[in-house]
């Protein structure tokens, strides 16, 4: 699909967003390990800032939201609110085993099963906690997604692709 025609200012904004995405961290009740690994990423050894990334406190300035940990019930509505404050197009990275399925805390009475239950997630980083290398990998994947989404003019193409893959499989399985 060809890139939709965009005005110059929009193209400039897109370029800037890819060159320097700002991230905000949201601790939704993590065990802290994911948080310290992200901070370790910002530090001289791994230095994620070489991708132009800047950690920002306010969600209103951010492009990418990194959710660390499983979502506790009390944090769920706060997470939703923070996510709503991020300007479009917003991207979400869910950290670790907890982000995908609550990890070691699966089934506990004050924990949501997935981050996906509260907000849509674009990239998952694997590990418990993910090593800084994996966090960097997740961020780079997210930047590539950003680029592709701009070519396709939105995020819908990914859902379409998932449907294209899933539907024949489901038909085969008779679901």
């Amino acid at each position: 699909m060809a890139a939709p025609l965009q005005c110059l200012s929009q193209r400039l904004v897109n370029w800037a967003r890819i060159k320097s995405p700002w991230i905000t961290l949201f601790n939704s009740g993590a065990c802290n390990a994911c948080d310290i690994e992200i901070i370790a990423c910002l530090m001289p050894r791994f230095d994620i800032e070489r991708f132009g990334i800047l950690a920002k406190g306010s969600p209103r300035h951010a492009d990418i939201l990194i959710v660390t940990g499983h979502v506790t019930l009390k944090q769920a509505s706060r997470l939703r609110r923070v996510w709503e404050q991020i300007p479009e197009p917003r991207y979400v990275i869910a950290m670790g085993a907890c982000g995908a399925s609550a990890g070691a805390f699966h089934g506990l009475y004050h924990v949501m099963e997935r981050v996906e239950d509260v907000i849509p997630v674009d990239v998952y980083a694997a590990g418990c906690p993910p090593r800084p290398d994996e966090i960097i990998n997740a961020v780079v994947t997210c930047l590539n997604l950003l680029k592709e989404d701009q070519v396709h003019g939105g995020k819908e193409w990914r859902q379409r692709r998932v449907r294209e893959i899933m539907e024949p499989m489901e038909r085969k399985a008779g679901i």
């Binding site: 065990c31 948080d35 506790t72 944090q75 906690p129």
Partner: peptide, 26 residues
């Protein structure tokens, strides 16, 4: 960040409880 670890620890045997207790704090 209340998760209910103490209660969950009562459901797991000594082998499975250790990873959970490690994750009380990172």
């Amino acid at each position: 960040s209340h998760r209910g670890i103490e209660k969950a620890a009562e459901q797991r045997d000594f082998i499975r409880v250790l990873p959970l207790l490690e994750r009380v704090c990172g």
